[in-house]
Nucleic acid binder design. Structure first.
Length: 345
DNA sequence: TAGACGTGGGC
DNA sequence: TGCCCAAGTCT
């Protein structure tokens, strides 16, 4: 085990001298700090920056976001992924508005009850915004700690993460928020997964894995499950009023996002006509195809244009399609016909 | 507890 | 190119 007080001071000094200027480090508003942490979940800093800037401009306060239209929020979140994050965040913020007079609770016990607040976000917001002495254990911190302690346990297990959290908290410095960020910053810029910069690491003298020349063996890596593959036909159902049929997704995956009708490749046209209660022309050759890779599955999509003279509430004017929140997977498909001249549709 | 849940950067 | 992985949480 390494000497914590010395380690803490060394790491904090390094952080203060080297920290990157990030937009969410310019604010002390707990709402904005919280928003940034929600966005940063499983998402790289470079990706988050433009989204964060857009959100704090458009939704300047907790109340503004609490009272926003959910579909507008989804549209602004479009492309960031894990769409439940923003829905849960709005839910949580609405609860803060009602129960806590729009003030983010500085009491950890209350804050942790809010939707979308887990061990990481809870610790991060409470320490950074309120300087409460909680650890914020993310992937960076787990990698750093596994190497420092030469800890071969499975870092993906919640029980191990809890233990790491306690290990950090038992010698937490007064500057808890800065210390948490220092640990993460170290992982993001020095103690990186593939090519760690041990030579310039400020805490290399404390690293057991480095002493054993085994840095790359930590953290322990588990082999990943193969992604399941799905094959879909995606239909551009067009009527004679320049409208297209779009479906609001209600399943967990991409919930709340709009999509083109998507069916297993063996689904008959008749059953699709029945489902939407419309009559369809026979599809011609596919207009194109796309593969989309998710964390846990792969979609292979082939697009077909079909026509109808029917109309119902699911038909949207073609010019309005891009105003609706849509996953990147579906945007790829929509782009197949957005370049086709109107005369050919 | 393990699997579901998005997308893009970077090698 | 394909694969790993990124400031995790929910069920």
């Amino acid at each position: 085990m390494f000497k914590r007080p010395v380690f803490n001071n060394t790491l904090l000094n390094w952080y203060h001298a080297n920290k990157r200027e990030l937009p969410w480090r310019e604010t002390s508003d707990p709402f904005k700090i919280w928003l940034s942490e929600v966005m940063l979940q499983q998402t790289q800093v470079i990706t988050v920056i433009p989204y964060y800037e857009k959100f704090i401009t458009k939704y300047e306060s907790l109340d503004a976001l609490a009272e926003a239209d959910e579909q507008d929020l989804l549209k602004d979140w479009e492309g960031l992924g894990y769409y439940n994050r923003i829905r849960n965040f709005q839910h949580a913020v609405q609860e803060v508005q009602e129960k806590y007079d729009s003030k983010v609770p500085d009491c950890p016990e209350e804050f942790f009850k809010l939707k979308g607040v887990g061990p990481y976000i809870g610790g991060a917001v409470q320490s950074i915004a309120f300087n409460n002495a909680l650890a914020a254990v993310d992937g960076n911190v787990l990698r750093v700690m596994s190497r420092l302690n030469r800890d071969g346990r499975d870092m993906t297990k919640a029980s191990v993460q809890k233990d790491v959290k306690h290990f950090i908290e038992k010698d937490m410095p007064l500057e808890a928020g800065d210390f948490n960020q220092a640990l993460m910053e170290l992982g993001a810029t020095i103690c990186t997964p593939r090519t760690p910069k041990c030579v310039i690491c400020p805490v290399k003298d404390h690293c057991e894995a480095l002493k054993a020349n085994e840095v790359m063996q930590y953290p322990l890596k588990k082999k990943k499950k193969a992604k399941q593959e799905y094959y879909y036909n995606v239909y551009f159902i067009l009527n004679d009023k320049d409208e297209i049929l779009l479906i609001k997704q209600e399943d967990d995956l991409l919930k709340g996002m709009y999509e083109l009708p998507r069916f297993d490749v063996d689904t008959s046209l008749e059953s699709i006509e029945e489902k939407y209660n419309i009559h369809l022309s026979q599809p011609g050759a596919p207009v194109g195809s796309h593969k989309h890779v998710f964390t846990h599955k792969i979609w292979y999509m082939e697009g077909y244009i079909v026509y109808t003279v029917n109309d119902n509430e699911n038909f949207i004017p073609l010019k309005d399609v891009k105003k609706l929140p849509m996953s990147v997977a579906m945007q790829k498909m929509v782009n197949l016909i957005s370049t086709v001249p109107d005369s050919e549709l």
